[in-house]
Write a protein that binds this DNA or RNA. Structure first.
Ligand code: FES
Ligand code: FES
Lengths: 164, 164
DNA sequence: CAGTATACGACCAAATGGGTCCGGGATTCA
DNA sequence: TGAATCCCGGACCCATTTGGTCGTATACTG
């Protein structure tokens, strides 16, 4: 649990979701081109092409992307980058998220009745989802040189003020 | 990834952290007794005793609990339940949390330089941590019959209004 | 038809997580 | 002094989840 490699874990989104966000951001930053192939995007970031391909396929199936086979084909955002939230991306790739190990939706865990912690934590979960929903791909893409504070009226800005 | 078992995952805290929170809540609800043994708490919730033991040991090492060996020994909160945040508990058990798969603290992942997503997500992470910090063990414990709305000025209350 | 790209399922290896076992040390009480 | 409790902590195990590969089928372009 703490074998002293480094130490991070917890609340982390999967690498796949990370890759997905990176790809969407990339697409948002290249609106001029009609489509970008999976390989192009993968090469741009140095991530495994085949893996990214499957991720993009999933994003296509959920309607966030539109794909086009054949030469000069590839993927393109299905709508404005401002209208795609980080939540949608993560949800599409990693599935519905819930902060407690056991969900209440279906079967839950065996000791669900005795666990009284779950309920209040659900509220935390809602908050997190709300934050993720308030961030759009556009927000991730536009800050040019990493100067995050300049953004203006985007959700990222809202986040800072919200941060207690 | 979506083999259609049910679907939850993501952003979930580990069961160990869940157990830890449950135990702390339990202790907060029994202030009269000087100490509760690991086994007692484990039995109360039906969770594996040996596992909970190790969790409590860790919480002790980080200073959230005080332990006492020997007969009628056990664990007790080291300070007021109001002064112990959910964040501290989770952090103690699961280690430092970071939303991206790769931390920036130590080595990070190999493609850290090319990944531009990480930075904005770090802000989301800060927000989440803030929320977790604003919740105390006391908040988890006191709402008697699950009527969360009654709480008053606690952090849980704040959360609801905060939730956008 | 040749070439490029997506679609998708099977498969695999490593990491993580939940959980157990067991041999110590304290501490209390008879 | 010892027996009964109880904490401490490392070694280990197993199931699941991840990250990642491969191969093949399909679709589109020219
Ligand atoms: S809900 Fe399963 S342990 Fe809390
Ligand atoms: S930081 Fe490693 S992939 Fe984004």
């Amino acid at each position: 649990m703490r074998t002293e490699p480094v130490g991070y874990y917890m609340l982390k989104l999967t690498k796949k979701a990370d890759y997905g966000l990176m790809a969407l951001k990339y697409l948002a930053e290249h609106p001029e081109t009609p489509a970008q192939s999976a390989k192009d995007i993968a090469d741009a970031y140095g991530i495994p092409a085949q893996l990214l391909a499957k991720i993009l396929q999933r994003l296509t199936k959920t309607g966030l992307l539109r794909s086009h086979a054949g030469m000069n084909g590839g993927y393109a955002l299905s709508r404005d980058a401002r209208k795609i939230s980080a939540f949608e991306v993560i949800h599409a790739i990693d599935g519905p998220l819930f902060i407690t190990s056991c969900t209440k939706g279906a079967k839950g865990c065996d000791l669900t009745p005795s666990c009284t912690i779950k309920e209040p934590l659900a509220r935390v979960n809602e908050t997190i989802i709300g934050v993720l929903k308030s961030i759009s791909i556009y927000d991730l893409a536009d800050q040019e040189s990493g100067k995050a504070a300049v953004v203006g009226t985007t959700a990222v800005q809202r986040l800072v003020t919200l941060n207690l």
